[in-house]
Simulated scan of single mutants.
Amino acid sequence: MTTEPERDPGEPADVRAARAAIDAYLNRTDPSARTRSADGRIDDRTAELVAREAWDAVMAVTPPPPDPATDPGPAVEPPEVAERRERAVAVVRGLQKLGHHLDETLLPGPDLAAG
């Protein structure tokens, strides 16, 4: 199953990440809930669900902020959080490059830029 009608082996890594996230999402959802346009592309609503799922994966492994009263030191982000954050940023950027319009709350801010 493909998520978009055209694939280019030289496409950017973030587009490949977005396609992989779309495929993973579609493989887990009920076929009747899958929304595609006449040309086989997913719609923006589905793209937003894919982006939300990527950010939810970041939140699932993000520890709560330290209590300043008991731990005044700087918080160090665990490697798993950083890895999932980079993936979420790549998925969102890839979805945008594929032409999807996402809710601005799903877009990475300057503090989340993964490079």
Rank of each mutant, 00 (worst) to 15 (best):
I42N: 01
D14F: 01
A38S: 15
A17H: 02
V58L: 06
I22V: 14
D39N: 05
D44K: 05
A20I: 00
A51S: 10
A57H: 07
A47G: 13
W55A: 09
R52N: 07
G40N: 10
R41P: 02
A38L: 15
A33E: 15
A57N: 14
T29H: 12
D43T: 15
A33Q: 14
L26V: 15
R36F: 08
D23I: 04
R16V: 08
V15C: 05
A54C: 07
T35Y: 00
L26D: 13
L26A: 15
R19P: 02
A24S: 12
A38P: 03
I22Y: 03
V50E: 08
I22A: 12
L49E: 10
I22P: 00
A18Y: 08
V15M: 03
A20E: 13
I42V: 14
V58E: 04
W55V: 03
L49Q: 12
D56K: 11
R28C: 07
A21T: 02
W55M: 00
D43W: 10
D14H: 14
P12C: 11
V61N: 01
D39Q: 05
A47V: 02
D30T: 13
A57I: 02
V15G: 00
M59Y: 13
R52M: 06
R36K: 10
R16N: 06
R36I: 10
A51Y: 01
A54N: 01
R19A: 09
T46F: 06
I22H: 01
R19N: 11
E53G: 10
D56I: 03
A13H: 12
I42Q: 02
A47Y: 03
A60M: 10
I42S: 06
A18S: 13
P31M: 07
D23K: 04
V15H: 00
Y25S: 09
D39V: 09
A21F: 02
R34Y: 04
R19Y: 03
R28W: 08
A57C: 06
V58C: 04
L26P: 02
A18R: 00
V58T: 08
A60V: 03
D56Q: 12
